[in-house]
Nucleic acid binder design. Structure first.
Length: 158
DNA sequence: GCCAACGTTGGC
DNA sequence: GCCAACGTTGGC
């Protein structure tokens, strides 16, 4: 299948691109997603070698911090049945995981965060999911054209 | 800290 | 199955 592009949101105080880079093999599982629409994408649509924008939400600066790639496709999110964890869901179990996650590996960090305000001002990103008002989905598809516009923009950053 | 947007829950 | 109430997300 052709490579696809995505945007994953994270609060950098909780998990940042620097955390990912510093992890073993610069790889970590993207766990804790508890939204069905996002779950379906993690389970069914996101596959190995897809590329992902690492987006910072509820933070300053707010926006895209860099790129990672999918190193393992959708598999059960075991934090669902970790009763001591923050993402515990009493309905989830190994037999019925409900929630899914993927593994991502660090690719690059942009020289600085590309802010949401910049994204909103870029020609060609008018229909991008993240620039839409009230866009809360934490896992979002990115069109190849949008991906390219942002990467080209990032190249010019110092 | 506010509040709009939107997902989920639960009564009926 | 509808929909009001409630909770959460996340930009501002």
């Amino acid at each position: 299948m052709a490579k696809r592009y995505w945007l994953f949101k994270s609060e950098p105080d909780c998990f940042s691109i620097d955390h990912l880079k510093a992890a073993d093999n610069s790889t970590a599982s993207w766990d804790g997603v508890r939204n069905y629409q996002a779950r379906n994408m993690l389970r069914d649509e996101i596959s190995v070698n897809d590329e992902v924008f690492f987006y910072y939400s509820s933070s300053d600066p707010l926006g895209i911090s860099g790129v990672c790639s999918v190193s393992k496709g959708g598999y059960p999110d075991h934090t669902g049945w970790d009763i001591n964890g923050q993402h515990y869901d009493p309905k989830a179990s190994p037999d019925n995981p409900i929630w899914y996650m993927v593994d991502v590996s660090f690719v690059k960090k942009f020289p600085r965060v590309i802010s949401l305000a910049e994204l909103k001002g870029m020609p060609g990103l008018e229909d991008m999911v993240v620039t839409q008002r009230g866009s809360r989905l934490s896992i979002q598809p990115v069109r190849p054209e949008e991906w390219e516009i942002i990467l080209q923009y990032a190249k010019k950053l110092k």
